[in-house]
Design a protein around this nucleic acid. Structure first.
Lengths: 355, 355
DNA sequence: TTGAAAGCGATACCAC
DNA sequence: GTGGTATCGCTTTCAA
């Protein structure tokens, strides 16, 4: 049986209250007595029972907000699942999680939602932000007010969020480069397809990819100039079609954003399916189909579920026990998915285990 | 504020005790009253506060045993980490987890340990077994005594364990086959290296691999007859060296067991490093080094941490709420690891989040 | 500076 | 069948 504050109190010949004040340095306790209590606690290896602590704090009830942008995308749907699951589980600990689902990227709407949530009295916020000065300022403001913020899926570097949880996109790009090298013979020609030109995530995925390929001295893949497809399948289709026709020796395509369906279609139309290695991002339903049909070779997944699931718990820990996340940048695993390790496993891990 | 049992009691005009008995169907309550209570609870969306429940549980103490074989291996060390972490977290719920660490595979010792643990009064057992008739019988015996058993990492199929948690080795073999096909051109020659001939796990890894390659109609890899290396680096080294010398066109090696270090060394000695794709198993420290030095192309990992972490919780749930695991065969994720997605991420996820 | 006591929410036990 | 009460470990008043 673990050691309790009561036991320490008895050994020290004082009351539980005194022990509590001493161990938490709340003052109003004789220094000598405090020292004795600290010594005894250390000797016994006292660890306050978190359950007991938590119970006390259920008095002040917690309200946490979550704002998700681009909910219409498959990836954000998965993040949303994570949030919902967290909401379910935390409800049983007396936490109310208010989720705002916003379509598209709209800073105005985000700022409004923040306003609304704070007026409802939230004590913490999880948000998938866009990286703008105004939003940064807003987050810093919340921090000053004592409302901790966690960015999820995308980050605002340098802002006063207590942490970010999401993918290390540069590292993901490196991973893609490594896989391309494994799959393709030396001097193969590869086309990188980017998303939006000013999207940090996509740029990092691209830079990680390019940097790593340039470092390679064993493999000298020939990299074509990257093309932006603006997340659109029709653009991606056209770019791919054109590239294939102009470059019969093209054998690898790296897609940093959406557009992979257009790419696959073009490859198929040009009768190159199976001959071109394609790496894309995010294991969602459409991409699972493309993997199963051998259209995509590999999908790099960012474990979107975790990105939604964990922030509410981290905020809860912070509010409850004043405990900061272990790191400011929490990177979710870069999962490499192929036809064979994607179907069963990827989604069963999210199965409800609370029933 | 979440709704409490007290509130329901007041609304129903009864006491908390009655509410508790009614909601948990413990009997000894007027059916009409019970119905009313259930109705009110449903209307208010009552969810019992987990923190309150947890606090009560700290009273009664559960005792659970865990027996780990081959603890000297890197993989089992990771399983052990999982067990230890679970022990830490469950201690707060009044659960004592007794871990027995056994070196090597020794059925005698296992049976002894089980004896010892049961005489200490454990109410549940997690075990990494060898697949023998005696152990199967022992597990079935425990089941009859009302002591649930969970097999971890390796299984005893058909025994009365309430579940198994570990890798789907056949599926892993398929995954390896898929990757080989992606990495190697048509008609490449590949050598499969097996471990022990009678090891089920290794055989499944091999069969999944071979079956899948035979199904492929686009890729016709030429598969050499498989060779057993008995988990030994020296054997693996010799086999590899010999195979390379006899088959200058050999370009892929699939290692289902230990022995990968011998393989890599032989490849290097024959000046074939980088020219031969090697797939091996388990992301542990030595294999991470081999990945970083580009000796191994890919490692398939079985998430050994989870295999140790989850069983104690599953046993606890079973003992606590008579709740069986959602499946009898719980397969851990098949993680594909390369140089770039293995170092940072793999081990940081196990970082202690309880501090 | 200290102690005693009241809760937090749920459960278990013992009277009635 | 039921209500009352003690309890889990901790925090937080309120008196002294």
């Amino acid at each position: 049986m673990a050691v309790t504050a009561q036991q320490i109190a008895e050994l020290a010949g004082v009351s539980r209250g005194t022990v509590d004040r001493a161990l938490h340095n709340r003052g109003r306790v004789n220094p000598e007595v405090a020292a004795r209590i600290h010594r005894i606690a250390a000797e016994l290896g006292y660890k306050p029972n978190l359950v007991g602590q938590a119970l006390v704090r259920t008095k002040r009830d917690f309200k946490i907000g979550a704002i998700l942008q681009s909910v219409e995308t498959p990836t954000m749907q998965i993040v949303l699942e994570g949030l919902r699951r967290a909401a379910d589980e935390l409800r049983a600990s007396g936490v109310e999680l208010i989720i705002r689902e916003l379509r598209g990227l709209d800073e105005e709407l985000v700022l409004e939602s923040i306003e609304e949530l704070t007026s409802q009295g939230i004590q913490g916020l999880a948000i998938s932000p866009n990286n703008t000065a105004e939003l940064r300022q807003c987050i810093n403001g919340l921090y000053e007010q004592g409302i901790p913020v966690i960015t999820m899926n995308s980050d605002i570097p340098g802002s006063k969020r207590i942490c970010f949880i999401g993918m290390d996109n540069y590292r993901a790009g490196q991973t893609a480069a490594g896989l391309m090298c494994q799959m393709l013979p030396d001097t193969s020609k590869v086309l990188p397809l980017a998303g939006h030109l000013n999207n940090t995530a996509h740029n990092n995925r691209l830079n990680g990819f390019l940097d790593t390929l340039h470092e390679q001295n064993t493999h000298n893949l020939r990299i074509m100039p990257f093309q932006p497809c603006f997340d659109r399948n029709d653009y991606a289709h056209e770019i791919t079609q054109h590239a294939l026709r102009e470059n019969p020796d093209l054998v690898g395509i790296y897609v940093t954003s959406n557009g992979q369906e257009g790419v696959c279609q073009a490859v198929e139309e040009e009768c190159k399916k199976g001959k071109i290695k394609i790496i894309a991002y995010d294991l969602n339903a459409p991409n699972m189909r493309l993997l199963q049909s051998d259209s995509l070779s590999i999908v790099l997944d960012q474990e979107a579920f975790d990105q939604g699931y964990r922030p509410p718990f981290l905020l809860y820990e912070y509010l409850m026990h004043h405990k900061l996340p272990e790191k400011v940048l929490i990177y979710t695993d870069i999962a490499i998915r192929t036809k064979y390790n994607s179907d069963l496993i990827a989604f069963t891990n999210h199965a409800d285990t609370t029933k």
